[in-house]
Nucleic acid binder design. Structure first.
Lengths: 266, 266
DNA sequence: CGTCGACTTGAACACTTTCAAACAAAGTGG
DNA sequence: CCACTTTGTTTGAAAGTGTTCAAGTCGACG
């Protein structure tokens, strides 16, 4: 593991309050590894051996059933996933694969369980993290049940804009097919819905989205903190999103951009 | 609070391992209350002041957005809800109302947060509870995204049967409109789907459901522990369901029956 | 006995998916 | 550097799924 990676991990909400000695012990048993694009890191149903922390790159969490697949979340640096499975020593509910070349740290779940039993601060951090993760999935489920797909798309775009600092123009940052799956629809349906929303206050050009009439779009799907997540800083519940950046109107420009996917603690 | 209620609460997974002194302190600040049918106990968006524990009766957790409503879960004795909101000191994501005359215990969330900071066993129980709750909602979301409504209904019935002890006949135990909302569909759609499934191995008569051909039904929606929940005892993740009971073929009989709704920790 | 709410049924409508095809962009190898 | 392949996106048409509205049935309860 590289020296400059440790401080980043240490500053994660999950680890920042624990005793240095315990943190060091946790990292002792951990190891870092770099994976190429498209590697299946974990498969749903497998036993939860490691807590995974994304140091660089990005990881897709997805679920499968009867031949179908759907994206549940995208984890970006510095964020962790499958905490819950590790804690319950239960099989993973989701699979994970790298969306690009990515560097991860793997912490043995047995160490994890041992440490929060004797470090109260770490226990509290774990509780906070899990409570936040629970609320994220609950919000996701609410969105799926209470909103039509058109409304989900509108709300998603508004959230993206907000997370980038209420800019009017931004880059999606993830493939549309992946966004579609995350929002519970087919790529074709998303494509058509985006087209349809061009009459409701947005303009889409490839990955570039511009909100031309925010009020109009908000009329399609009024944002709700109880579904779209809280406003203000620290919104991503224990997940550090890359710094939001307004995106230039010129397409094809390389810009770091938020994905707006909810964090996953398993 | 009544004397015979405390032991029940004490035996909840959440409280069973903590120090007696701390448990008593928690209950000191708590109070019990009986509510009639249809009372709104909490409203989504309100600040989380109390952890709620259902001692008797049943409580519906539901969510609202833009005039629409959906059922997220039903909590039965002895089970708790809105743990996560209490922990994060955040607004409730869901509302709750009594489905029948119900008795609840309300524990101030500030006490809760204070106690798990100094009782490691309680902290661990809280962690386990939250991790389980997270996995429940995650499974629910997976079902919504990966299954059609027909498959969700079939899987729901199989799960009910399983939870009642793999019986061939059982009572639904909750209004169909509520089940429909829980499964993310309209009452009309559920009605038609049940009718349609009568050709696929079930027979429905009011609240009474009989599985006539388990294999046929399982072919419609193969059960998956990563969606429908684990097999075996303690399946309900921190929630004690009423003892499963085979239901007589005669309708209108008063039988305690499981609801099969996932537990909610907020 | 009458009222109310839950459940069912039918028909029309709206929304989504599926399948097929064309197109565009990014990466590969000559 | 240019074909060439691969993969993601868009579009159209048809089929499937789910919702809405309206009306009627049933059972529970006062």
């Amino acid at each position: 593991m590289r020296a400059n990676e440790l401080p980043e991990v240490r500053h994660l909400p999950l680890f920042r309050d624990m005793l240095q000695a315990n943190f060091e012990q946790l990292m002792q048993g951990a190891y870092a590894q770099t994976f190429p694009t498209g590697v299946e890191l974990i498969r749903q149903g497998d036993p939860a051996d490691f807590l995974h922390i994304v140091i660089a790159g990005s990881v897709e969490m997805y679920a499968e059933w009867g031949g179908r697949t759907c994206t549940m979340a995208v984890v970006q640096p510095v964020g962790s996933f499958i905490l819950a499975a590790c804690i319950r020593d239960a099989p993973y509910l989701m699979s994970a694969r790298t969306l690009e070349k990515s560097r991860l740290i793997l912490v043995p779940s047995s160490d994890l369980r041992a440490v929060f039993r004797r470090d109260p601060e770490f226990a509290v951090s774990t509780i906070t993290e899990l409570a936040g993760a629970f609320r994220s999935v609950a919000r996701h489920a609410k969105g799926l049940k209470l909103r039509t797909s058109r409304e989900r798309v509108a709300a998603y775009l508004l959230k993206q804009s907000r997370q980038a600092g209420n800019v009017e123009s931004f880059v999606l940052g993830v493939e549309k097919r992946l966004i579609a799956s995350y929002l519970g629809m087919t790529p074709e349906n998303l494509s058509r819905t985006l087209r349809q929303l061009e009459g409701e206050g947005i303009r889409v050009n490839g990955q570039q989205v511009t909100i031309t009439d925010r009020h109009r779009l908000m009329a399609v799907a009024p944002p709700d903190p109880l579904i779209d997540g809280p406003d203000g800083p620290g919104a991503g519940v224990g997940m550090s999103l890359p710094p939001p950046s307004t995106a230039s109107a010129k397409p094809r420009e390389k810009v770091v951009s938020p994905t707006g996917f909810e964090p996953v603690t398993h």
